[in-house]
Simulated assay, not measured.
Amino acid sequence: MASSDIYADGFDEESTGKLPTNDCPDCPGTLVTEQGETRCDTCGLVVEAARLDRRGKRIHPRDETKRERTGAPLTNARHDRGLSTTIGRGQDAKGNELPNQKRRQLSRLRREHSRATWQSKAERNLGHGCTEIARLVSALGLDRAIREQAATLFRTAQDASLLPGRSIESMAAACVYAACRCAEQTRTLAEITRVARVAESRVRNAYQTLNRELNLPIPPQEPAAFVPKLASAVDAAPETRRAAIALADQATETGLSSGRDPAGFAAACLEVAATEHNGDVTQEALATAADVCPVTVRANRNTLQAQLGTGSA
């Protein structure tokens, strides 16, 4: 029997491209599959090198309409939702040099495209705010979900006319902080302000406005959530960390931590736990990691020792 007959009986290009047998169509060898490639281990014949994608059109489940393979989905992280166009320069898609006449034409197109990018002053402010949010998220090492949520908050604040009288930088920093609070991430206002371009008081004012006007679903911050971060900063022992978390949970249940800075109270819990377990943790290091002064840590420590009877005063 000819090899073409064997190949025709065992391989069908109209189906999934798989052979019903492991026998090579050209020799007595055996077919093996490695890294998506099916070949003969004797003669090296490649039977299946690239599978056809028969899934059809690409569908974005979050969109109301079906979209074909025309790029990435829409995003709120950019002012134009990712629909902007970049006009290249110098070379075409294949890397060939463009003639001078074509370069001059593309230069004129880029100039007109830049002028038409911003349809209004509000859109320009939105672009500036999205860029500032992207810078803050990158500097803080946050994930893309925080950037998306912060950009959505900025859009909502702009639609609610909360920007007049406040700088774009302060509102962008407040949106990042509000997104972290909504996602229950242990980021303090001082951490956000450290990489922002405005003072902490302006960021706090913008955040309070957001929280009051938009009724954000922000849960209260618990001191126990700050303990792992502070313990890693001061290199505390695992038993000290567990004892501090238990102490913070006990203080939360009794209402002892109400009205206190959660990071500073978590630092005090770590200090008390380190004292009980003979840990080498200084009060100054804890205060620095929690972005509070040593007096705050000391006052919370004294309250814990007096109310819960832990350690020695």
Rank of each mutant, 00 (worst) to 15 (best):
A233M: 09
A233L: 11
A233C: 07
A233K: 14
V234L: 10
V234D: 06
V234S: 07
D235L: 02
D235P: 00
D235G: 02
A236K: 04
A236S: 14
A236N: 07
A236Y: 01
A236R: 04
A236E: 11
A237I: 07
A237D: 15
A237K: 14
A237N: 12
A237S: 15
P238I: 09
E239V: 09
E239S: 13
T240P: 10
R241E: 15
R241P: 03
R241L: 10
R242K: 14
R242N: 14
R242C: 03
R242D: 15
A243P: 03
A243N: 15
A243M: 14
A243W: 04
A244E: 09
A244Q: 12
A244C: 08
I245K: 10
I245Y: 00
I245D: 06
A246F: 04
A246C: 02
A246I: 03
A246S: 13
A246G: 09
A246K: 15
L247I: 05
A248W: 01
A248Y: 05
A248M: 08
D249V: 03
D249A: 05
D249R: 15
D249C: 08
Q250S: 14
Q250T: 14
Q250E: 15
Q250W: 02
Q250V: 01
Q250A: 13
A251G: 01
A251T: 02
T252A: 12
T252P: 00
T252V: 12
T252C: 05
E253D: 15
E253N: 12
E253Y: 04
E253F: 07
T254E: 15
G255R: 02
G255L: 05
G255P: 07
G255Y: 07
G255E: 12
L256A: 03
L256N: 02
L256E: 11
S257T: 13
S257R: 01
S257E: 11
S257A: 15
S257M: 05
S257C: 11
S258E: 15
G259C: 06
G259I: 02
G259A: 02
G259Q: 03
R260Y: 10
R260G: 00
R260D: 08
R260T: 13
D261I: 06
D261R: 10
D261L: 01
P262D: 03
P262N: 06
P262W: 04
A263P: 01
A263K: 04
G264I: 00
G264L: 03
G264A: 04
G264K: 10
F265R: 03
F265L: 01
A266W: 02
A266P: 04
A267T: 09
A267V: 08
A267D: 07
A267L: 07
